[in-house]
Amino acid sequence: SSGYQSCREAVAAYYNCPEAPLKAQDVILTSGCSQAIELALAVLANPGQNILVPRPGFSLYKTLALSMGIEVKLYNLLPEKAWEIDLEHLESLVDEKTACLIVNNPSNPCGSVFSKSHLQEILAVASRQCVPILADEIYGDMVFADCKYEPIATLSTNVPILSCGGLAKRWLVPGWRMGWILIHDRRDIFGNEIRDGLLRLSQRILGPCTIVQGALERILHRTPPEFYHNTLSILKSNADLCYAALSAIPGLQPVRPAGAMYLMVEIEMEHFPEFENDVEFTERLISEQSVFCLPATCFEYPNFFRVVITVPEEMILEACSRIQEFCEMHYQGAEGTQDLECDK
């Protein structure tokens, strides 16, 4: 089902603002944010159409789309610009079969947070091309003190948006399986077709957990502010520690995160010639140092790896120390690389 009326009202009240007004009928409750993304994709795109997906990006988008017969086109994010979207590349991918643009902000795996001006540029592309947006905002408000999170719907005047979110990340309860879709369509571009489609799709299974729905109003409106503050303080401290430690290691180039729970690190593969790619690098890191980092090939972005910054501080420091030991053991400077090539 789409969720109890009182619970949809609670979510609408929590996210409602003058720039992006919401009522209960604009909310569909789901079994976690993953189901929200699945329903949003299913209602926006038909088999044979295509969607625009960030690279690097959360792998679920591609998995779901391909299972529905939807083509995936990958647009580039730019690490040298704190993972902003390459807008020219994005717009070049749009064609008559493009059904929607996925925007993930804050980002998994990048830990990036788009500025207001960049979000406006993204909206300008979507407006010119008449492409709706599926906004994956599960990490909304999980940004560090020197950044500000802007829900993309608050900046849109004419681009219809389905915003997907949930309890899992900000409230740290992933197993509770409570997500939602917020329908932002002030100009009624979606019409009844999208709303009716979402309602029907949500009724295929029982959907959101009944017990968690009973607690949802209290969770949203009575969680003390210090809970959010403490969570972000730990994430920011861990991000700073991890960034500083990895920046000092020859052959690695971390990109400073601004929110979410992740940090991406470039591997200068020319200095690690015994490894063919990021997958082999991270596999050896596990076997030799018992440190697990996800190779960014998983996110369609080779020669990077992702670090999760949610673990205790002492574990972050120990992991970084082991990564340093691993890199020092395998690093080859320019001369070493040249010698290796001569040996071949």
Rank of each mutant, 00 (worst) to 15 (best):
E268Q: 14
H330K: 10
S117V: 11
I309Y: 01
C298Q: 11
L60E: 10
Y4Q: 12
G32N: 02
T223F: 05
A124Y: 09
G165W: 00
R186D: 11
G175N: 10
L206N: 15
P208T: 04
N192C: 12
T310H: 06
E318V: 08
S92N: 10
E9P: 04
E341G: 10
L172C: 12
H184D: 06
A65Q: 03
G259M: 00
E328R: 15
N108M: 12
L101C: 05
I286N: 12
L41K: 00
R128A: 07
C293R: 06
Q203E: 15
E9V: 08
Y15D: 04
S34V: 10
L64A: 06
Q338H: 14
K23C: 13
H184P: 07
I286R: 15
N192M: 10
V159G: 00
I323R: 03
G3F: 01
A65D: 02
G251F: 07
S163A: 15
S202I: 04
Q203W: 14
M269Q: 11
Y14S: 05
L123Q: 00
V113C: 13
L123Y: 01
T154D: 10
I152K: 00
S92T: 11
K344V: 14
E121C: 06
I28H: 01
A20T: 09
I249E: 06
C164H: 01
I189S: 15
E266P: 07
